[in-house]
């Protein structure tokens, strides 16, 4: 993947497929590190499935929603000296409280760090593709944070779906302004 944003897009699709009602994407940046956390309340995975998603060579064909997505994120993190962690509780094991948390840690000064890329377009299109999910996006940077919770938008929008074009544009502009306000340099022309 050319941008970490694309990895985020890809991993979040697993949460959508896991029938999550809520997906929370958090980016925490310090001077030299970036942590990406994707947390959902979807159907979760068994311990064996978690092992399988980590390694493409151990992936069995019985788990259809598993592919190269997690290994690619793992590679992107490990090549900077970081790594990933997955915690998951399957719906079978705990019908009340299930879901998956994937956390990837990066050392941003490393030569092989993949830039975050166009996170605004990514978040906007993720919402466009799954407008019934509650999306929470929080990006804590060194100079401030950008946050979006689609539940706050829905409270105002009523019956108008989040994938309405005007709403999608609003979300895109809102995020762009958020990044401009904190003078965030994403090495990308917005």
């Amino acid at each position: 993947m050319k941008e970490l944003s694309l990895n985020i897009f890809d991993i979040s699709q697993n949460s959508v497929k896991a029938k999550a009602e809520k997906i929370e994407i958090t980016l925490d940046e310090t001077e030299e590190t970036l942590a990406i956390t994707i947390r959902d309340n979807g159907c979760g995975m068994t311990a064996e499935q978690v092992r399988n998603v980590m390694d493409p060579f151990f992936t069995t064909r019985t788990t259809r929603n598993v592919g190269l997505g997690v290994p690619l994120l793992k590679l992107a993190a490990e090549q900077t000296g970081g790594g990933i962690r997955i915690e998951s509780v399957s719906e079978k094991d705990n019908p009340e409280n299930h879901g998956t948390v994937i956390r990837a840690d990066f050392f941003t000064k490393h030569l092989d760090f993949t830039p975050l890329g166009d996170i605004v377009s990514t978040v906007t299109l993720m919402i466009q593709g799954a407008p019934d999910i509650r999306w929470i996006f929080i990006h804590n940077t060194g100079s401030g944070s950008v946050e979006l919770d689609t539940d706050e938008l829905k409270a105002v929008l009523g019956d108008v779906p989040l994938n309405n074009y005007d709403v999608i544009k609003w979300i895109e502009e809102y995020l762009k302004e958020g990044y401009a306000d904190i003078h965030y340099n994403m090495g990308y022309n917005l």
């Binding site: 938008l153 105002v156 929008l157 009523g158 108008v160 309405n164 005007d166 609003w170």
Partner: peptide, 9 residues
């Protein structure tokens, strides 16, 4: 602005 979108829709 979102409220305005709702009105329009």
């Amino acid at each position: 602005e979102l409220a305005a979108i709702r009105e329009k829709m």
